[in-house]
């Protein structure tokens, strides 16, 4: 990449890439914030519910938009180091795999499970909802930053990678909090739920077939 290319990419990033990043967040994050949003809603007075949820989303979104700058810079740096997209993708996949098994990832996932007490009245309630968004966003960035690099490099299968990362991130949040340790962590509970649902749906058919025999 030439110097003018780097500069134009740098200038382009704050505008076009920020908008793309925002779109990506809007597409990927809703399933991840259903539970904390519900917490903010249930812990607020009826006339403050929409406001509390809005402030949570603003706080959460602000953290992810800030993190987006860092991730875009990392992606740009990787592209400068190697123009081969596949190499960049392999590097980001390795980083994601290493982060996935680390205790630091568990530390962040544990904080994704946090449901703090929220003030109910006045400015304190607004601040509590916003702070909850910030802290949940920070935990979410910590848990997902490496996974979120993957769609940035998967140019050809961008949407598919986004979908896969979203499903993986959603599924791993179904796991309970756990002690910090080096170990593989993935969507075990989600897979067990899918298997149990499949068995429940297939069992009546099998029974009916046996009865017919």
């Amino acid at each position: 990449m030439t110097l003018s290319g780097i500069c134009s990419a740098g200038l382009r990033m704050p505008l076009a890439d920020s908008f793309n990043w925002l779109l990506m967040l809007a597409a990927m994050m809703p399933p991840l914030i259903v539970a904390p949003l519900r917490h903010a809603r249930e812990r607020s007075f009826a006339h403050r519910r929409a406001r509390a949820m809005f402030l949570f989303v603003i706080g959460y979104g602000a953290v992810w938009m800030t993190a987006g700058i860092g991730l875009q810079v990392m992606a740009l740096a990787a592209q400068l180091a190697s123009s081969d997209t596949l190499t960049c993708l392999a590097l980001s996949a390795s980083a994601a795999a290493l982060w996935q098994v680390s205790p630091a990832k568990q530390w962040c996932l544990n904080r994704c499970h946090r449901r703090p007490q929220l003030a109910a009245f006045g400015a304190a309630a607004d601040r509590a909802a916003f702070d909850f968004g910030l802290s949940h966003g920070a935990a979410c960035v910590g848990a997902c930053w490496a996974l979120m690099l993957l769609p940035l490099f998967a140019r050809q299968a961008h949407v598919l990678t986004m979908l896969a990362v979203m499903l993986f991130a959603f599924a791993e949040r179904l796991e309970n909090a756990a002690p910090l340790a080096w170990r593989w962590r993935g969507p075990g509970k989600a897979l067990r739920i899918i298997a149990a649902q499949a068995r429940m749906h297939l069992a009546p058919r099998e029974r009916a077939l046996r009865t017919n025999d």
Binding site: N110, P116, A177
Partner: peptide
């Protein structure tokens, strides 16, 4: 306890 089987809530 924050980093055990509960989130410390």
């Amino acid at each position: 306890a924050a980093d055990d089987k509960h989130a410390g809530d």
